[in-house]
């Protein structure tokens, strides 16, 4: 395995992927570094890559009229950044900005989609892993919307 494929192999996101699958992914990947304050993705921009954060933190923000940029979620090491590359229209829904120096492995999205079409084993494994990520994030978002820490209802002493 080359160096990049070796880096993948150590990421929990890629656990269970075969050496051949990791090598194929490595051919579509490159490391990227973003300094504090730099944008990794921009709302409505082309979702042309999939990123896995290896170090640093990224905040996802949405533009809300009258309120400006509202932070939605912070992502850290081991977290995949974005799934808009998986489904049309392949546009980012949010901004993603580095909160500190952040390193990611970035995969070229179109090549990744082609690889998933051509190699259904790889496609299935990747989709399955992304669904886990999406499910956890959806649960977290629902929990976030519950206002857990507000005043409890009912008559309290």
């Amino acid at each position: 395995m080359d160096d990049l494929a070796q880096v993948f192999a150590e990421e929990p996101f890629f656990s269970g992927f075969s050496d051949a699958q990791l090598r194929r992914l490595a051919g579509l990947a490159r490391p990227e570094v973003y300094q504090n304050g730099r944008y990794l993705i921009r709302q409505n921009g082309s979702a042309d890559r999939f990123m896995l954060i290896t170090t640093g933190h990224v905040v996802l923000k949405a533009f809300v009229p009258q309120r400006g940029m509202v932070p939605l979620e912070t992502l850290g090491p081991g977290d995949p950044l974005g799934w808009s590359w998986l489904a049309p229209p392949y546009k980012w829904h949010y901004d993603g900005r580095a909160l500190e120096r952040t390193e990611v492995i970035a995969f070229e999205a179109e090549g990744l989609r082609q690889a998933m079409e051509q190699d259904h084993e790889l496609g299935y494994r990747l989709q399955k892993r992304m669904i886990e990520v999406i499910a956890h994030r959806l649960q977290a978002a629902r929990l976030q919307s519950l206002d857990l820490y507000g005043n409890p209802a009912g008559d309290l002493p």
Binding site: K61, M69, V70, P71, T74, Q144
Partner: peptide
């Protein structure tokens, strides 16, 4: 759970 643009810390539920 919620923050404005001035917050530099983590946003998201504690389970994350």
């Amino acid at each position: 759970d919620r923050a404005d643009a001035s917050w530099r810390g983590d946003v998201g539920v504690v389970t994350r």
